[in-house]
Amino acid sequence: MLRHFYLIRSSFPRIFDLIYWPTVQIILWGFVSKFFTMHSDYFNNVAGVILSAAILYDFLFRSSISYNMLFLEEIWSRNIINLFVSPLKISEIIMALTSSALIRTMIGLVPAAFIAIPLFGISIFELGVPLILLLFSLYLFGVTLGLLVTAGLVRFGPSFENVAWASLFFIAPLGCIYYPVEILPSWVQPIALGLPLAHIFEETRNILVNQTVSFTNIYYAIGLNLIYLTLAISIFYKSFASAKRNGTLVNIGE
């Protein structure tokens, strides 16, 4: 964590990069949201649905990408061997990546979320206390995806990097970020409901549109997240053991 704190602290372009993309994303979706509000009955009374979904999705995207970036930074700087020959446990590496990813994500997202208030009159904080649970759930899923990609990087080396960037786009259509699950073909719906994202965004819409909170969706999301996270941790450990057997740990570091 200290290593990444030094890295961010000393580089204005890095801080700028962390804040820039979420802000652009929110401004773009803010205008889209405004347009829909003016031209759609569905969105007429709930101006914040699309923009809130965009902010939450960006939170997920940033947490997952941050996780991957932190690991890739070690590969790119050829420092990864130094980490693996230190007495750090795998669990400690995972914890450090997880915590650092959260900090990076918050640096980017908090200013963007505040910018949306004066610019579009929309605040995700209107989601109230459940917002914490929704963000927690998204963060768990972001870390899960990050862990899976990192496991791939450990096992297959830097050539797996492209998957790191594309990972979230594979899942986005099933996440039902901007539309209800019912929009999907009936045979795809069970798959979507097997992901925590569908429950998280379903609940976001429910809170904003119906002004009620259904904890069932939130519990489902957290439960599914815990299952996926456990699986991802186990896959990471297996990839690490496999990389040691195949000698790829030495190759990714040089």
Binding site: L2, Y6, L7, R78, I81, S86, P87
Partner: peptide, 25 residues
């Protein structure tokens, strides 16, 4: 372990790198 083929984070100063590894160990 030391090897010229394994490097320390390039963007960190020498002192920062030593502090990071001092903490790590």
């Amino acid at each position: 372990f030391a090897s010229p083929y394994v490097e320390l984070p390039k963007k960190l100063t020498v002192l920062e790198n030593l502090k990071v590894y001092g903490r790590m160990y």
